[in-house]
């Protein structure tokens, strides 16, 4: 099976490690961790991920800033980004927070839920490519 490349950007190394280990158990993903937000752009260009899991609050450069840089970079602009956030309320989490075309997942997230979201995002992207639709018109589906 074609393994998808997932870049996990979070300053919490234990979390990125746990995500990597968990995703790797599915054998469906190749996971790269990046704990230094300022290096994340370079890492992304170099790793060429199929999807990026991005923490919101990080020291130095926060997730929102990184996401807009990725969008501005022609090499990265089409890569789906899923935000992982610790600041979602119960209600927002239940509603599945979508903001600016990005999907937000509340921490802590279980593996099952995470894989579902990743797969949905990858599928949506494949669908968009097929129909040449802009990436942010049908976000997170």
């Amino acid at each position: 099976m074609d393994q998808k490349r997932i870049l996990v950007i979070d300053d919490e190394s234990a979390l990125t490690r746990m995500i990597r280990l968990n995703l790797e158990t599915t054998k469906r993903y190749v996971v790269r961790e990046e704990n230094r937000a300022p290096h994340a752009h370079t890492t992304a260009r170099e790793f060429k991920p199929d999807l990026i899991l991005l923490d919101v609050i990080m020291p130095g450069t926060d997730g929102g800033e990184l996401a807009s840089r990725f969008r501005a970079d022609p090499a990265l602009k089409d890569i789906p980004v899923i935000f992982l956030t610790a600041t979602l309320s119960k209600r927002e989490a239940a509603e599945g927070m979508i903001n600016g075309g990005y999907l937000f997942l509340p921490k802590p997230v279980g593996l099952k839920n995470l894989v579902e979201c990743i797969e949905n995002a990858l599928a949506a992207k494949a669908h968009e490519h097929k129909h040449e639709v802009k990436p942010d018109t049908e976000p997170g589906k």
Binding site: E12, A14, L15, M18, I19, L21, N22, T25, I57, L84, A86, T87, P106, K107, P108, V109, G110, L111, K112
Partner: peptide, 25 residues
């Protein structure tokens, strides 16, 4: 509250993922 959530939820996320990993392992 936001600060606490961020500081506590990250470790919780680690634990959650860790438990998922152990459950599989």
């Amino acid at each position: 509250a936001a600060g606490i959530a961020h500081e506590v939820k990250n470790p919780l996320a680690v634990i959650r993922m860790g438990m998922d990993y152990l459950t599989n392992a």
